[in-house]
Design a protein around this nucleic acid. Structure first.
Lengths: 189, 189
DNA sequence: GAATCAAACTAACACTTGTTAGTTTTAGTT
DNA sequence: AACTAAAACTAACAAGTGTTAGTTTGATTC
């Protein structure tokens, strides 16, 4: 019914608290206190605690889905596609460090939206693996278990929300290049 | 006062539930129900919910600390040390997939033991970075930001608890070799 | 100045939380 | 059969949970 900027403020504030303590450990009174109002007042803007979590997670998941779509449909090499995926994660995470924590840690507390979230995640991982499998077939990548490669890269990319905030004055572009190098070419001289 | 195997059973059962829902979302009644007893009965064996979490996390953190000690003191090459760190994570995680979830996700809910845990973690990361820095100086590793290398490798290793259980019939030894290859030499042909 | 409306408030609800106290059951030992 | 000790039980607690209902505030519009 209502969509206003106060709602966004609640969502943003909640995301900060969710990152610090996790969804379940944060109470409506915690969120309200952080905003300088009473818990009951939150319900003028949102319908439930659940809804806050959904808004945080689903909007991010959809951003990943959307951008993966354009990456996979482009006609670049597999390695260039992988570099674009690295950039995608760095960009979204640098703009949403708090929300990314919920996406990674609290997705299981989604209720009505859980199946939808799981579908998006599964599709994303499949797209990722398909790019790697094509890279192997085209002799761009080493012949190794693609599952291990996806796992390794995606684990690192999913952990960016922990690491990026620690490096406040980071040159994002430079970091993206550096991380791509490490992930794709390794650290061995 | 008391240390018995029923206590271990509680800890193990709790770890399973903590992995599924997170520490805060699991109630003493959940744990009791899973064991077929009443919540109050748990207190014949443990002193608090907190204590369960501490036992899970601290014992694992100490295992990592101890084994890192022997790795760093050995006189192998930096690359071989890194391979041993990979093996360390795979081994501990394959034997403690549930506890490793708590270690990764619920450490912030430690109370009295939190400073001790943070100290162990910081030391571990420092040891890890020192090995990488020596590898760079010795011309074994590429000249890149060691922080990025530690972050990348450690993120993957810390996520093993999510991935290993999905591959039940995995040859642990083979997987360790494969993962070392991907992490150290990359995926580029 | 009256009316409007978003957004705050107070008060309360039904339920769940971790935990304690005191009691009974269970099973093994004498 | 009596004793013991571990480990279960029932009952209750004080505090905290998400949420609702109804009311007041404060700024904007007529």
């Amino acid at each position: 019914m209502k969509y206003d900027s106060r709602k966004d403020e609640i969502i943003q504030t909640s995301a900060i608290l969710f990152k610090k303590k996790g969804f379940s450990a944060v109470t409506m009174r915690d969120i309200a206190k952080e905003m300088g109002i009473k818990a009951a007042s939150l319900y003028n803007h949102i319908n439930s605690k659940q809804e806050i979590l959904s808004e945080i997670i689903i909007s991010l998941a959809e951003q990943f889905t959307e951008q993966m779509k354009s990456i996979k449909m482009s006609d670049e090499s597999s390695i260039d596609k992988l570099k674009q995926i690295v950039a995608l994660h760095v960009n979204i995470t640098s703009k949403n460090q708090f929300g990314m924590a919920s996406l990674n840690n609290d997705w299981m507390h989604l209720e009505a939206q859980l199946p939808y979230y799981l579908k998006l995640r599964k599709n994303y991982e499949n797209d990722f693996r398909n790019i790697i499998e094509k890279g192997i077939k085209d002799n761009e990548l080493i012949t190794q278990n693609p599952d291990v490669m996806v796992f390794s890269m995606l684990s690192t990319l999913r952990s960016l929300y922990i690491w990026l905030p620690k490096k406040e004055d980071l040159d994002i572009e430079k970091f993206t290049t550096e991380l791509s190098l490490v992930l794709i070419n390794g650290i061995n001289k």
